[in-house]
Amino acid sequence: MRIKETVTCLIEEAIANHASDMFFLVRGQEMLVNSRTITGINEQAKFTLNEGKEIINYLKYGAQMDIAEHRRPQVGALTYDYQDEKYYLRLSSVGDFAGCESLVLRIIYQVQAGQYFLPEQIEQLKSLTKRRGLVVTSGPTGSGKTTTMYKLAQAVGQKQMVMTIEDPVEIHQPAFLQTQVNDEAEISYARLLEAALRHRPDILIIGEIRNAQTARLAVDAALSGHLVFATVHAKSTLQTISRLESLQINQNELSNCLTAVSYQRLLPTKTGFSCLLDIASGQVLQDSIRQRQRGNFVSWADNLMKLKQRGEISTPIYEQFQEG
């Protein structure tokens, strides 16, 4: 079996189906390759255990991961060129209780200007960044959060210093100063933030807010006068506020640092995929911060109905995404 050709076919098939993730999992004496698309997780291919190990090692090597380590968690990243487009692949490996290694490969798609259903939503976010503070983009895995965050920073950060703190770097942008967490080298989020503030960036990108420490760093940077972009996993626009509260950020801090929160999904169209956002800012955002019980969306339902009426999405897609 030619490993390079096999991996190429697997990745390009996943891209053609607009899969957000590929899962390389041991099942008995076989290696299954599953992919996650908008319809759920489906089996993509099946290999012998030895073939599967070769595939994983090939991918790990390309992502500059330790191919001799099969138990401890590792992360890596690489870029993939296909049909004149650049895709960013983020890899994560770990061994299970039986010592069998698994690998997850996330595919990050470039979202071009024409791939937003409502381009005025991006313009709204660009306008809001003039207030500085913290702008949080939420949504599930594969919804294009990182791409939107980079698009905003690129649009409003011309002739400005843009610095990123990520784990790992997902999108390579030569115009930005990009830094990456490295636990083995004791390069933590905290240390990188100290370095970031000494570099005096105008715009700071703090990848994914995963824990209380990362949330605290993002809020402190915003409160100190920086424009901060960050992503978080949340089920809806206004529940992004609740997610930040669960990470030990109090309402007073949120009221003073949050400029906007948004939620987004990639929806299939007749010609591909486009991004729909839902944005909370201004008085709507401030009122929601003070509420004990929050709703979910600001204008998601109305915009989804608008897309259906214009024929940009089908009725089944409209029904599937009513809850975000």
Rank of each mutant, 00 (worst) to 15 (best):
A301N: 14
L307A: 05
D183K: 12
I15T: 06
K308I: 02
V298Y: 08
Q115A: 11
R131T: 02
Y150V: 12
Q44M: 07
E319M: 11
G133Q: 07
A230M: 03
T231P: 09
A215C: 05
C100E: 12
I165P: 04
L49T: 08
T231D: 01
S188F: 02
L254V: 06
V169D: 00
I108E: 10
V232I: 15
V298G: 02
F176T: 01
I107P: 14
A234Y: 00
P140E: 03
Y61Q: 10
G114V: 05
H199T: 06
A63M: 06
R243T: 14
Q110R: 06
C9Q: 09
M1I: 12
Y88A: 09
G114M: 02
L118E: 07
E43D: 10
D278G: 00
R290K: 12
N250T: 06
L266Q: 01
N250S: 09
E85I: 01
F24Y: 14
L125V: 04
L128P: 02
Y61T: 09
D167K: 12
Y82L: 04
K159M: 09
G52H: 10
A63N: 05
G133M: 04
C275E: 05
L91V: 00
K4A: 13
A195N: 08
A14L: 02
A221G: 11
M22R: 06
A196M: 09
L10K: 07
Q112E: 10
Q286F: 00
E13V: 07
R2C: 06
L152R: 03
V261D: 02
L105D: 00
N57Q: 15
E166C: 11
F117R: 01
L285C: 04
P140F: 00
A234C: 02
V136W: 01
